[in-house]
């Protein structure tokens, strides 16, 4: 017996759709210099944020983003009932430390760069289930903490592959409440881990595109929606390479005329030397909590499908020769 609110294979539909009542985004200087710089709440002056280390800077950035989202509703951290957050670091330390300071009951998430939609999915379920009334979902990434954990030391002279992506320094936080006047989270599709056998650690787009399209296809099928139902289907961080592959897969899978874009492609300018585009949890988090939700609020977008994509890559198992599995979760956000 499938659940009462379950539709099709992997999708849930919310009876009392949770409302996104406030949101906030904090980004680094490079993201601030991009085309959407003015749409974020705070653009940091540097990457270190006045702290001793980049890891501390990342957690302060995440903490500040959550505080700012709550402030917009005149809430203090203790008013929030649950924090769902994740990041890219080992043991998701940025989120753990932000939760330590905020003292909000905390469930840590790891979904690599898919964390934002994972948090929204879990948060919406818990709210529609009647367990919590105020939930914060947040995610962050920091270029320099991610680089040193996943790739090379900053000063090592390494040629960037053209398929490589730039981990965004950014954080986004969303406040969900059970009452309010839109945007609402109407439905969510929990993704499967899909492995297309890709092994190149400098080409996450190719690794993730399969998972993204699988989730989008499943979502549309489960709810019996046409490809162009959403005003915008936006993937998390496929970058130029991954989103070009995704566009081809849409044709193969019979998804007709999707209004499709990718946060990793949108976040930066052509001239910013970011390779294939942006990546990281913060990439889709800040695009959602900046330009996208603003556009929903002022009526430019009515129906948005956020599909944050995560490459579940670990340098350790990649060195053992394994391929890179990926995941994508879809969250349907609608204004009415």
């Amino acid at each position: 017996m499938p659940g009462r609110k379950k539709r099709g294979q992997q999708t849930v539909v919310f009876e009392n759709p949770p409302t996104i009542t406030a949101w906030a985004s904090v980004v680094g200087p490079k993201e601030g210099a991009g085309p959407w710089g003015a749409e974020f709440d705070v653009v940091m002056d540097d990457y270190i944020f006045g702290e001793k280390t980049w890891e501390i800077a990342e957690y302060k950035m995440l903490r500040g983003t959550i505080e700012r989202a709550l402030e917009k509703r005149n809430f203090r951290p203790e008013d929030a009932e649950l924090l769902l957050a994740g990041d890219l670091l080992n043991q998701i330390v940025a989120s753990n430390f932000a939760a330590r300071d905020l003292e909000i009951p905390f469930l840590g998430l790891y979904g690599a760069c898919s964390t934002m939609s994972e948090g929204l999915t879990v948060g919406a379920m818990l709210m529609d289930g009647g367990y919590f009334d105020r939930i914060v979902a947040a995610a962050s990434s920091h270029h320099y903490t991610a680089e040193r954990q996943y790739r090379f030391p900053t000063e090592q002279g390494v040629q960037k592959s053209q398929t490589a992506q730039w981990t965004a320094t950014a954080a986004g936080a969303v406040l969900l409440e059970s009452r309010g006047s839109g945007p609402y989270i109407k439905a969510a599709t929990v993704g499967k881990v899909i492995d297309m056998g890709q092994t190149d650690m400098a080409d996450m787009g190719s690794a993730m595109a399969g998972a993204a399209v699988h989730t989008i296809k499943t979502h549309l099928d489960d709810l019996n929606l046409p490809g162009n139902y959403y005003d915008l289907i936006v993937t998390g961080d496929l970058g130029k390479v991954g989103s070009a592959i995704a566009s081809q897969l849409f044709v193969r899978d019979g998804i007709v005329n999707p209004n499709y874009s990718d946060c990793g492609v949108l976040l930066y300018d052509q001239s910013q030397a970011v390779g294939s585009g942006g990546s990281g949890c913060g990439c889709s988090a800040c695009m959602l909590c900046g330009p996208l939700l603003k556009k929903m609020q002022n009526g430019e977008l009515q129906k948005l499908l956020l599909v944050s994509t995560g490459a579940l890559m670990s340098p350790i198992i990649s060195f053992q020769g394994e391929s890179i599995p990926s995941i994508a979760h879809a969250v349907a956000i609608e204004m009415y």
Partner: peptide, 28 residues
């Protein structure tokens, strides 16, 4: 690091690349 972006193996293969790898990991 900026030289390496362009030169690739040209700045990795010489012993200077060895020194760069050592210093970069230590600095990080």
């Amino acid at each position: 690091n900026q030289l390496g972006q362009r030169a690739g193996a040209g700045s990795i293969v010489p012993i200077t690349g060895f020194a760069n790898a050592i210093v970069a990991s230590a600095l990080e």
